[in-house]
Simulated assay, not measured.
Amino acid sequence: MIDIHCHILPGIDDGAQHIDNSLDMAKLAVQEGIRTIIATPHHKNGRYDNPKQDIVRKVNELNERLEKESIQLTILPGQEPAINGDLLENCQKGEILSLNNTPYQLIELPSSHVPRYTTQMLFDLQIKGLTPIIVHPERNLEIQERPELLFKMVEKGALAQLTAGAVCGKFGKRVKNLAFDLIEANLVHFIASDAHNIYKRSFNIGQAFDTIEAKYGVDMVYLFQENSELLVEGQNVYKEVPKLVKRKKFLGVF
């Protein structure tokens, strides 16, 4: 398996704090069947600033250590930039690191809302040749209330990635239910760990895929897994026609 979103690089954000944490995460990832991880440290989110060249250097250093420790895992370079007014300009300047130097670009929204300029910026990124991937939309409070916001983004060409832990209920029932709603509406294209450590924010990918297979069948699992493989190779991923999330009735009332 390939994990396209993980905070495994040591000492640069709220993920692994030192190399021993990174190695522990790597060993657990291999146990779960993960063979490739794209390291995606936070960038420009108000707390962390991780320039492209620093990430590439850290990835090379970690790969060397994994080889030395005989841990069968490959780390690829990536970044999780927060959406902001300078993002497009920074992408144009080559200051933002895409996923494994492909056209695919992670985009992190604020946890509390969706900025009004989001849809336009995502469109502008596509005009410049990038395919934006909205990370963990199921955990965004405004999307929880108005999932049609994500529909509008996906309808206009953006992609989205669910957190494996959300599928497993690690973020609560409401988030888990929305995760399933988004899958059923063809509004997500990847499952990734967003792992930060081996304790509270671990991988959970194997459990997530078991849950998805039990609910939707093995073909859905294959779709998500193959999309991650296609992404790493810079190829077009599979997309179904997006739909609006159906509003659920509660005691017979919408």
Rank of each mutant, 00 (worst) to 15 (best):
E95D: 15
G172D: 02
G129K: 08
H189T: 00
L231K: 07
L178R: 03
E95Y: 14
L125E: 03
Y222P: 01
F123E: 05
A82P: 01
K44G: 02
P77E: 03
K68I: 05
P137W: 03
D86C: 00
A160W: 04
I96R: 02
Q31L: 15
I127A: 04
Q79N: 10
A166H: 01
I183G: 07
Q105S: 06
V30C: 12
Q144T: 02
S202E: 07
G11W: 10
L9F: 11
D54Q: 14
A82S: 11
L251Q: 11
I127V: 15
L244S: 13
M153A: 15
E226N: 15
L99M: 13
S98R: 06
T74C: 11
I127P: 00
P115M: 00
M121N: 02
G206H: 09
N197A: 13
L150I: 12
Q144E: 08
Q105V: 13
T36K: 10
H5N: 09
K215S: 12
K248Y: 00
M25Q: 10
V56N: 07
R247I: 11
S111K: 00
G172I: 00
L178N: 06
E69W: 12
L97K: 12
I12Y: 07
K27W: 06
G129D: 09
M1L: 14
K93S: 14
N101K: 06
N140I: 03
N227T: 06
E148C: 07
L76Y: 03
G11D: 11
L125G: 06
I127N: 01
T102P: 08
K44E: 09
V232C: 12
R35E: 14
V59M: 07
L130I: 10
